[in-house]
Simulated scan of single mutants.
Amino acid sequence: MRRGDAAARAARALVGARFRLHGRDPATGLDCVGVAAAALGCPAPADYAMRTGDADRAAMALAAAGLGRVAHGAPGDVVLMRSGPGQLHLAVLTDSGMIHADASLRRVVERPGAPPWPVIGAWRGEKEG
């Protein structure tokens, strides 16, 4: 089994968890960073603001967590998107869409289809091919 498949399955298990800014525990709530960290089993930074347009800093944080940038995302990869002016967002790709912490719905959801926001890049665990 490809590690990405396991990460996508782990992300899918988080669907329904409530949203909480800087949340790291599915029992108490997750934000998009918490979803990505839990799905991939990697560390999550705590020193970030909800609003930031600094994609380079986000890319450095993904690399520091042990993820490598890839040309094209696949299930289990993390995508960094620009979800609005001055706002970045992470999601975990699945075979049918993406899983992310939706602040407006106040929970982790699976959204079918392509990401609805411009994708800045995709990252995967370094041990994957």
Rank of each mutant, 00 (worst) to 15 (best):
residue 38 A to H: 07
residue 58 A to G: 03
residue 46 A to S: 12
residue 55 A to H: 06
residue 61 A to N: 09
residue 8 A to M: 04
residue 64 A to K: 11
residue 52 T to G: 06
residue 10 A to R: 14
residue 23 G to C: 07
residue 102 D to G: 14
residue 113 G to Q: 09
residue 116 P to L: 01
residue 115 P to F: 05
residue 53 G to Y: 00
residue 11 A to G: 09
residue 1 M to Y: 03
residue 52 T to D: 07
residue 28 T to N: 09
residue 92 V to Y: 04
residue 39 A to D: 04
residue 33 V to C: 04
residue 4 G to T: 05
residue 107 R to L: 13
residue 123 W to F: 05
residue 118 P to Y: 02
residue 39 A to G: 07
residue 121 G to D: 00
residue 85 P to I: 05
residue 39 A to V: 04
residue 129 G to N: 14
residue 76 G to C: 14
residue 10 A to Q: 10
residue 42 C to M: 08
residue 109 V to W: 03
residue 102 D to W: 13
residue 111 R to I: 03
residue 82 R to A: 12
residue 93 L to K: 11
residue 30 L to F: 00
residue 92 V to P: 06
residue 64 A to E: 12
residue 71 A to M: 14
residue 72 H to F: 14
residue 97 G to L: 11
residue 94 T to M: 10
residue 48 Y to H: 03
residue 18 R to C: 08
residue 24 R to D: 11
residue 122 A to V: 03
residue 123 W to Q: 03
residue 27 A to R: 15
residue 41 G to Q: 09
residue 88 L to V: 03
residue 32 C to F: 05
residue 55 A to F: 06
residue 109 V to Y: 06
residue 37 A to M: 00
residue 111 R to N: 10
residue 113 G to K: 11
residue 56 D to P: 04
residue 10 A to V: 02
residue 90 L to E: 02
residue 61 A to L: 06
residue 107 R to H: 11
residue 84 G to F: 00
residue 90 L to D: 03
residue 3 R to Y: 09
residue 6 A to K: 13
residue 46 A to D: 14
residue 52 T to W: 00
residue 62 L to M: 11
residue 26 P to T: 13
residue 63 A to Q: 13
residue 29 G to Y: 02
residue 22 H to L: 04
residue 72 H to S: 15
residue 9 R to D: 12
residue 56 D to S: 08
residue 92 V to W: 00
residue 87 Q to P: 02
residue 115 P to N: 08
residue 2 R to N: 12
residue 5 D to N: 10
residue 34 G to A: 05
residue 53 G to N: 06
residue 114 A to Q: 12
residue 65 A to T: 07
residue 61 A to S: 10
residue 126 E to Q: 13
residue 88 L to H: 01
residue 76 G to L: 13
residue 118 P to C: 02
residue 45 P to E: 13
residue 58 A to S: 01
residue 21 L to F: 13
residue 78 V to E: 10
residue 43 P to A: 05
residue 113 G to W: 05
residue 102 D to L: 13
residue 121 G to W: 01
residue 4 G to V: 02
residue 71 A to P: 15
residue 10 A to E: 10
residue 9 R to Y: 00
residue 101 A to M: 10
residue 3 R to G: 07
residue 60 M to N: 09
residue 104 S to I: 14
residue 102 D to M: 14
residue 85 P to H: 08
residue 7 A to S: 13
residue 55 A to D: 05
residue 30 L to I: 00
residue 99 I to C: 15
residue 29 G to C: 01
residue 29 G to S: 10
residue 21 L to Y: 14
residue 45 P to V: 03
residue 74 A to K: 15
residue 36 A to Q: 04
residue 23 G to F: 00
residue 13 A to M: 02
residue 12 R to Q: 11
residue 1 M to K: 10
residue 26 P to N: 14
residue 8 A to S: 12
residue 117 W to Q: 02
residue 66 G to A: 10
